[in-house]
Simulated assay, not measured.
Amino acid sequence: MERLLGLLKVKVVRGLNLAICDPLSHSSDPYVVIRLGQQKVKSSIKYKTINPEWNEELTLSITNWTLPVKIEVFDHDTFTKDDTMGDAEFSILDFVEIAVKDLTHVRDDTVMKTFQPNEENCYSADSHIMWKDGKVTQNMALKLRNTDTGELIMHLEWVNLPPGMSR
């Protein structure tokens, strides 16, 4: 059995300029699916929009920090298979390495690491792992792949295990 390292809260903030899958209404009915290993969590559906506001927090249990977090955006359809609207993925390796350290001596609002967009990642803007208000956090804008348009804005936050739970 793998040991639980902590919890990753993934806040799906919003989507920007997502693909139009319903041409008659010139919109889509998007939702987000997040996978990490065998875990799968899903946002609610936002109807008739290509700029959805979710502000939903989904939680993943972290036992293997080497696996990427995979994201898919779908257009909900009532009578047919849901359409894919793009995907993205990101590594949590650096995030978890920082999160499991003792950071009590670190000054608030300290940038622990910065990621810049490049061909090897899905970032569409600089993203910083921060120590803020006693928590390790990261804001990210991800450019969706396998589609012509669309970004997801997300926020990560690490939750340590309660005292007594083994790492």
Rank of each mutant, 00 (worst) to 15 (best):
F79G: 13
E53C: 02
M85Y: 09
Y47F: 09
I92T: 01
L36G: 04
T59I: 15
P68I: 03
T149W: 03
P52D: 15
E151W: 03
I71V: 15
E2K: 08
K42S: 02
S28D: 07
E72M: 13
M112V: 10
P23S: 08
D126L: 11
I45N: 05
I129D: 05
L18Q: 08
M1D: 13
N121E: 00
K135P: 01
K143I: 04
E56V: 09
A88S: 07
P117G: 03
M1V: 15
H26G: 05
V100G: 01
V13E: 14
L36K: 13
E72P: 00
M112A: 03
K132P: 04
A125W: 05
G134L: 04
F79D: 11
R167T: 14
D83R: 12
K81N: 10
H26S: 14
N160A: 08
V32N: 01
E97N: 07
F115T: 13
M130Q: 11
T110F: 00
D102P: 10
M130C: 06
R35S: 15
T78K: 04
G6M: 04
D108R: 02
L60A: 12
K9L: 12
K113C: 05
I20C: 13
H128P: 00
T78D: 06
L7S: 13
K9G: 07
S43T: 15
Y31D: 04
L18D: 13
V10H: 06
L60T: 09
K135N: 15
N160C: 07
V73S: 08
A88P: 02
P23C: 05
P30D: 05
I129R: 06
I45W: 03
R35W: 00
H26Y: 13
V111C: 15
C21I: 09
E89I: 06
G6A: 09
E57N: 10
A141R: 15
G134H: 02
N146T: 09
D102K: 15
H26E: 14
C122L: 01
S127N: 01
K143H: 09
A19Y: 01
L156V: 02
L103R: 10
L161Y: 08
T104K: 13
S44F: 01
H105C: 08
